[in-house]
Design a protein around this nucleic acid. Structure first.
Length: 623
RNA sequence: GCCCACAUAGCUCAGCCGGCAGAGCACUUCCUUGGUAAGGAAGAGGUCAUGGGUUCAAGUCCCAUUGUGGGCUCCA
């Protein structure tokens, strides 16, 4: 994970291709609702169904392709998959055929039978069946046993009908006990996730205990498609993507309004909380990246530029440069904490196949800060950061959930310092009142890490904020120091922090969370004035000016469409307030506000309306 | 990067077995000036992603390139 890269909040090319499982299309549905209420037994029953469904699918595939070689077929969140080596690519028609064979197998209600076989016999059996991947799995099992000084293991097979598969189990009693299922998609997957190994075809499916749950899941998938920020971004005219710069958004005026609103809010917070904002160059010489260690670990991910025989890079992160500002003068213990915020434009050369909308980009901006503290200030600073996260996410009606990643096996730095830092973080977490959990060993190799996750309206979990308590990398590599009260140089601790994470990604998440209906304070257009007839246009423009005078973002729909049509269009654009203005309102200098939800509000005078809306913006009222 | 699929008007999409480039929305103009989710008519809008090939003829078939989408160790 992030261990490989200093100051990185995103993955590198060398990691698993899909390093953020929380981003997985529809993670666990609605935690805290139905899914979580399942007791452990029900969950394991569901897992058994899903794993059994994988076997039944493998049976169907072997039926259609007798030469198919089987990879693995585990139960996963929401369903299962199975990997196959097949003579030709699967088509959607194949999925239909496979699914109907599965249904037949389920209808036949064949029992699952467990066979236990000594390792050597098992190996002969799968080898005779031509299942090379299974042979490899068995050899690995044996190797692992040998390493542990154990005997060759006894293996188990599960049979149903004529199908048999090496399998740890457990399974449901019979094929008829598998709940309602549906095959979803085919995708390529490397054998054991290793890009040097063969590419297999993976079929994904979903299984639920009841038809209702299956329907609900499928509906949620559809809903996620409808809310897809890539789709809504176009419909709402927020941003676009073009092949001249893959992985980088072109921000339209409306999307940039959202961006600026978030940035302004964060800047306001940062001023209040004692940050200073800085800006450092985007093009940086190789020398710096050698010093920071990126050159060895991260070069493949950087955009390089040659000039006059020197190699430069577009910066993939801000942190190394911030140390130049720290070191630009001698720092006293009285100067700390020093909080340097930076909205630097970052470029990372992510592999083309991993790019996706705003959530996986090559160019982005973090609400980044590097906070330099004395060890004795760490506890207070962590507490302040947790409070900050709580405050920021309240602007969006989101509840943060904190995960604390502790010291990994391979860690740099003084173990005593690690221990103290972790203890301080734990204290701060306990005091914060936020829900949190510990992920042992999940810290960066140079820093204990706090990741913040949020759950969106569809129950999907997203990782957003991160704090890394950097004991080693910035302070040691860049030889940072402050002068203590005895005149002695001391090492500060650097905290890397981002609360939104990347603005791009955060906006993408918000678009999907709100289905495009941003809270008033960050909505790109906050109100549309709808004149009923052309003669009301002058009054409509006057009203718009009154609202704009209060820094509200207002448009006037001066088209010659009918009022009904204007209301429809504004509603589709998710504009929070639609202000209808006809003879009555024009004369009385009032407006009839209607919300995008279709709610009709009482007629209000222009000034009162402006006051009310401006107040909602200032207070960042959600919903 | 790798596997598979996809790329037609600003957007959403249709276009069959290769034979004149289509619809709805949006846009422009005209009529309409209406009271809370689609008034009417006309018009404009296309290098069918790009480059090559097959063919009398290519949006359609083949190859390459670019981009986009679903995925690429939840471990028997």
């Amino acid at each position: 994970m992030d261990e490989r890269v200093l100051c990185s909040w995103r993955s590198t090319m060398n990691e698993r291709a899909n390093p953020e499982p929380d981003e997985e299309f529809l993670a666990t549905p609605e935690r805290g609702s139905a899914e979580q209420l399942l007791d452990a037994g029900a969950q394991s029953e569901l897992d058994a169904m899903r794993h059994s469904a994988a076997h039944v699918m493998a049976e169907a595939v072997l039926d259609l392709f007798p030469d198919a070689r089987l990879g693995i077929g585990p139960a996963i969140d929401n369903g299962f998959y199975y990997d196959f080596d097949l003579p030709r690519p699967l088509t959607p028609d194949d999925l239909v055929a496979i699914e109907s064979r599965m249904a037949a197998s389920a209808a036949a209600d064949r029992p699952f039978v467990r066979r236990e076989i000594p390792w050597a016999e098992a190996r002969t059996e799968v080898e005779r069946a031509g299942q090379g991947f299974k042979v490899e799995i068995l050899d690995d099992l044996a190797a692992r046993a040998r390493e542990g000084g154990q005997e060759l293991p006894v293996t188990s097979f599960y049979d149903h009908g004529s199908f048999t598969d090496l399998c740890r189990g457990p399974h449901v009693a019979s094929t008829g006990r598998i709940g309602p299922f549906k095959l979803l998609s085919v995708a390529g997957a490397y054998w054991r996730g290793d890009e040097k190994r063969p590419m297999l075809q993976r079929i994904y499916g979903t299984v639920w205990a009841s038809q209702e749950e299956l329907d609900r899941y499928l509906w949620r998938r559809e809903e996620a498609k409808r809310r897809d920020h890539r789709r809504l971004g176009v419909q709402l005219d927020l941003y676009s993507f073009h092949d001249v710069s893959p992985g980088s958004a072109f921000w339209h005026p409306k999307g940039w309004r959202v961006w600026l609103s978030l940035q302004e809010a964060m800047r306001e917070l940062q001023e209040r909380r004692g940050y200073d904002e800085i800006a450092t160059p985007m093009v940086v010489a190789e020398k710096l990246w050698r010093q920071s260690g990126h050159w060895d670990l991260y070069r493949d991910n950087m955009f390089l530029i040659e000039s006059e025989g020197q190699t430069f890079s577009l910066k993939p992160m801000n942190c190394p440069e911030s140390t130049f500002i720290y070191k630009s003068r001698v720092r006293s213990y009285r100067d700390l904490p020093l909080r340097l915020a930076e909205y630097g434009r970052l470029h990372r050369n992510e592999r083309s196949g991993t790019l996706s909308g705003l959530t996986r980009v090559r160019h982005f901006v973090q609400d980044d800060s590097h906070i330099f503290v004395r060890p004795d200030q760490l506890a207070d600073e962590i507490a302040a950061l947790l409070a900050e996260v709580d405050e920021v996410y309240a602007w969006f009606g989101l509840k943060p959930e904190v995960r604390f990643g502790t010291k990994p096996d391979k860690a740099l730095g003084d173990p005593a310092l690690w221990e103290r830092a972790e203890a301080l973080i734990l204290d701060a977490l306990r005091a914060s009142g936020l829900p949190w959990s510990v992920k042992a060993g999940d810290g960066a190799f140079y820093a204990p890490k706090i990741d913040v996750h949020i759950e969106d309206a569809l129950g999907r979990s997203w990782q957003t904020a991160t704090f890394q308590v950097d004991l080693v990398m910035l302070p040691e590599r860049f030889d940072l120091a402050y002068i203590d009260e005895h005149g002695q140089p001391q090492r500060p601790i650097a905290i890397h922090r981002a609360v939104y994470g990347s603005l791009e990604r955060f906006i993408g998440i918000l678009v999907e969370h709100y289905a495009g209906a941003f809270p008033l304070w960050c909505a790109p257009v906050q109100a549309v004035v709808v004149p009923i007839a052309d003669r009301h246009l002058p009054a409509a423009r006057e009203l718009a000016d009154v609202l704009r005078g209060r820094r509200l973002r207002v448009e006037v729909d001066g088209s010659d469409g009918r009022m009904q049509n204007k209301i429809r269009l504004a509603t589709e654009q998710k504009v929070p307030y639609i202000l209808v203005l006809g003879d009555r309102e024009a004369d009385a200098r009032t407006a009839a506000p209607r919300t995008r939800a279709g709610e009709q509000l009482p007629v209000e005078g222009w000034e009162a309306l402006a006051d009310r809306l401006a107040g909602e913006v200032t207070r960042r009222v959600v919903g």
